[in-house]
Design a protein around this nucleic acid. Structure first.
Lengths: 108, 108
DNA sequence: TATATATGCAACCATTTAATTGCACAAGAA
DNA sequence: TTCTTGTGCAATTAAATGGTTGCATATATA
C-alpha cells in the first residue's frame, strides 16, 4: 500500500479543496470542519489525513482538540508547476496585442 | 457512469501532466505521445480522452492522424483557483518584511 | 485492389478511492 | 470516579481509476 501522494492528488477532490478553503485563514478542528459537509466526521478525517500526508495542511494539538491549518508552502508547488504555462498564455496575449497593433497600422 | 470530470482531476495523474507538458507548444498525435511512455498506446489514448473531456486539450484531424494540443484557457482555471491563496502567501511575505523592519529599528 | 498504419472503442482486471459503521482512547466536565 | 466529548483507526463496501488485450474502421501506400 502506502500510495505515493502528492499535492496534485490532494487538490483533485472537491471536498478537499473546500477544506483547504475553510482553513486557509483560520485553523479548525475536524469536528467543526465536518459540520460544513453532508458526510460523516470520519470521512472528513480521512480527507484531512490525505492533506496532512501531502503536507498541504499542518496540525496543532490543543488539549483533546486538534487544529488544522493550511500550509501555503505546498500550494506554491502547484503555482510553480503552472508557472511555465502562465508564460505561454501571457505570450499568447502578447501575440494578440501584436495582431491588434498590426490592424491599427493597417487602418492608417 | 459518465463521471463528472474537471481540470483538477485531469492534472492529478502524473502521466497526464507529462502529456500536457509535451503538447503545450507543439501538437502531437497519440502515437507520437505514446512513444514517450512505457505504457500502451491505448492507455495513453484513455488519458487523452480524459483531457479532452475536461477540455484541457483540443484536437485537430489531419488525414488519419489526430493532432492534440493544450488549451491554455482551462489551465487558467487552476490559476484562478490559486489566485486567492497566492495573495495569502504574498501577505505572509509582507508580514515577514514587517518583522525584519521591526528588528532593524530595534537594533538602532 | 491489397496491405500497412493510426486511431478509437469495448471488455476485462487489479488497485485505489471515498464513504460507511463500529470501536478504542484520551481529555475535559459532572 | 463517572460521564461526555473529540478524535483516530480498522473493517467493509461500492465505485472509480489505470492498465491490459482484442477488434473495428478509416486513411494512406504498395
Amino acid at each position: 500500500m502506502e500510495t505515493r501522494r502528492d499535492i496534485f492528488q490532494a487538490i483533485a477532490d472537491p471536498t478537499r479543496r473546500a477544506i483547504i478553503g475553510l482553513i486557509a485563514i483560520t485553523a479548525m478542528t475536524p469536528g467543526d470542519l465536518a459540520a460544513h459537509f453532508n458526510t460523516s466526521r470520519q470521512a472528513i478525517s480521512k480527507h484531512i489525513k490525505v492533506l496532512v500526508e501531502c503536507e498541504v495542511i499542518k496540525q496543532r494539538n490543543a488539549g483533546r482538540e486538534i487544529l488544522y491549518q493550511l500550509d501555503l508552502n505546498k500550494m506554491k508547488e502547484v503555482d510553480e508547476w503552472l508557472e511555465k504555462y502562465r508564460c505561454l498564455w501571457e505570450k499568447r496575449f502578447d501575440q494578440l496585442e501584436n495582431v491588434l497593433e498590426k490592424l491599427k497600422t493597417k487602418k492608417k
